[in-house]
Design a protein around this nucleic acid. Sequence first.
RNA 1: GGGCGCUUAGCUCAGUUGGUUCAGAGCACUUGGUUUACACCCAAGGGGUCGGGGGUUCGAAUCCCUCAGCGCCCACCA
Length: 872
Amino acid sequence: MSIPSKFTPSAIEQKWYEYWTEHNYFHSSPDARKAYTIVIPPPNVTGVLHMGHLMNNTLQDVLIRRARMRGFNACWVPGTDHASIATEAKVVNKLKNEGIDKTDIGREAFLEKAWDWTHEHGGIILEQLKKLGCSCDWERTKFTLDEDMSKSVIKVFVDLYEKGLIYRGFRMVHWDPEAQTTLSDEEVIYEEKQGNLYHIAYAVENSDEKVVVATTRPETLFGDTAVAIHPNDERYANFHGKKAIVPLVNRVVPIIKDDYVSLEMGTGCLKVTPAHDENDKMLGDKHKLEFIDIFNSDGSLNHQGLHFEGQDRFAVRKAVVKELKTNGSLIKVTPHTHKVGTSERTKAVVEPRLSDQWFLRMESLAKPAIDAVENEDVQLVPKKFINTYRHWMNNIRDWNISRQLWWGHQIPAYYYGTHNENVVVADTKQEALEKAKKKTSNNTLTLEDLTQDEDVLDTWFSSWLWPISVFNGILEPENKEVSYYYPTQELVTGPDILFFWVARMIMSGYALRNEKPFSHVYLTGLVRDSQGRKMSKQLGNSPDAIKLMDMYGADGVRVGLLLSAAAGNDLLFDENLCQQGKNFANKIWNAFRLVQSWNVDENLSVCKTAAVGLDWYTAKFQQTLATIDDHFSKYRISDALMSTYKLIWDDFCSWLLEIVKPAYGASIDAETYQKVCVLFEDNLRLLHPFMPFLSEELWHAFTPRTKEEALIVSSWPTQQDIDIELLDKFDYSAELISQLRTIRKKQNIAFKEPIHLLETSEDKISLRLIVQKLVNISLWDLTDAAPEQSLSFRVNAHEYFVPVTASNLEEERSKMEEELSYQEGFLKSVQKKLSNERFVANAPEQVVDLERKKAADAEEKIATLKSRLNAF
RNA sequence: GGGCGCUUAGCUCAGUUGGUUCAGAGCACUUGGUUUACACCCAAGGGGUCGGGGGUUCGAAUCCCUCAGCGCCCACCA
């Protein structure tokens, strides 16, 4: 049978994924084993796979596959998020292209369109995860708008409302004029922008004087209902008790005194627009000022904006400035950089706006969640995020959970009667009716009298329940599943949603189950492009994940991503990494081809050279296994992979296979062959979490396996004793081999030409059989004195000679002189240390001994070098 | 404005409590190579004053101070 020399991933990926799903290896149900659970950070239902997902889910799959092999009942729960604002924006856009406004068709019809969209595009991303090899328990796939998930959300809302943690408040909120909804504090990104500070003169009533205010937002003057000065500001003492006249609108407003006003800032006079600035609202409440809302929900001015009605706020800003200039009210304009809040989703400049919204009180929820992270009950990896977390949690503000959108969980608040204050909160409309009847003692109320709140809940109000709700732990808190799987083990996600999601899940965990949601949070770095920019669809700088997998294979892409992905460190994505992953796959494939090609002879006696090599590799494997396990325990996944990479490529392929490889045309003895295969298979075990497809393919290629014997459900190697002495001997031998190879190269001695190796005393360390085989040594003799026509070299302090016929010994001489001067310098520095009394007195004995040994070694080397040089 | 973190080879990063010849790894690079698994390969090799300055110590990439540069998070300042 001919096996292709190039490994083609596409030929096996689908086959093995189907095999795994067919035999249900991914599925988990509670049993006697210990559970190892990961819930996926649910991607947007209509999203497509990007580099961040690739990275994230590869990590999760590595963890879950290794756990499965280690005998845990591994359960990885997949699912998607309805992504309220993002999905609604997409659907609105689509309708817009069809010339339809969402308000035209109404809520019901819009939701139907949104569901159509979801069904059409939904779940694509989960299919793409399969291509990556993710071993999710697909039977458990959840969607945040599934019926039971929705019921869970509603139940939590009702419970928290009844506990008094959810309230309705008329507050200053962030308004996204493009999406036409409020946003939470976390959804607002402050960006530094170049703007202007406009100095505008307001006339003082019954006076010739003017009061000059400074503002970055002149267009808001239509909403001005006061001018504020500091009570102790002597410059403006004469304005006390007077009134100012707002330009353009000619509104007469009081000049109020408040020590909130800064003496240094701007002109020291502040225009007060209570309806459009949080601080101004505070002043408005305190001084009982009028609140005048001047904006429509799309950011254009309403009738308060007089002749500017209907125009956009930014156009109005320009126009207002022009008019103020014309009438002489504009004193001056100075450039001014300031931070402007923008919407995380739509990038629109957010507008502070007063409105009725639902809020969740966070303070009491935060407390146990802070403790959990502080005492490492929940461990953040890397640890540096603890600070960020603590700071945010200690300053947490109430969470605005209502959104003026349709796509999402409609708030279960029902209004009745004429006033909006008449509200009941209940799981269903029917229950709401009962509650309302009770509350009003009015038995004549009917369902028609109740109107449900139009708004939906923030997307994160469903995702913060995810680790509980996927196991139905909200509706049935004592059910077998949630008791078994919760709390979960790992959460793998990006630091960008530490507050949006991670912190809130920790809070909900303690609030709803009095138990952490997960033990570890692995925060990955952001995948950036080669210029260091964040990869995003908006920038279009993200490579097509599917194409990448087609080009390099899923295994190759997994390896490529993991190689450079230290936790919490951003990864500058470079396709070369995937190429490296693919090369690795090819290397392993060819190693397999080599082993397969060997002719096994049952009658041959065991090869002694191979036996030494196998013993060494067994020790090396054990040593590396310990390193790999240690890396995993510290979540140093890329280091674990690199250790595996070097073990297989360098130690297994470059060393062991070369040692074991039979001569051309010769056969291999059965015992050696068997041992090589077993070790190869052990390598595949280590490899499986990283490269599941290739490893499973070769696992079955070695020998036919039943479904119970598949690699995915086989075992992770266990630690055995490590033969350290043998490892040392091998390292010594490897150094000897390397030196001999250098001589071959420098002297142009072909491999086929055997080398005669001499030494004056026998080295007791090197593994002669191996050295002889790998550098082709014909004779290895003792000699009384250094031969004249020879090159010498040392491994540690032991000297070897290779007789040469070539006469370029001058080069050898200068090389030795160079080494002599280095050794002498080195000896000098060591002796200096040793002659320092304070060093000898203060340093630990071990360290001093070590220095003494160094000195002795150097002296010995110097002696041999000198005698050699004399011999020339 | 406050807080946190980073700066080590051309690139991406390791470097546990200061102490083995400790200055490392992978990639990239240079040179040589048809050794019949693999050129997606093999072998050998070059390359860094550990951001600058100061200090503590017998000893500093590692601890302290300071300066510079970069990044992230938080914050309502006109």
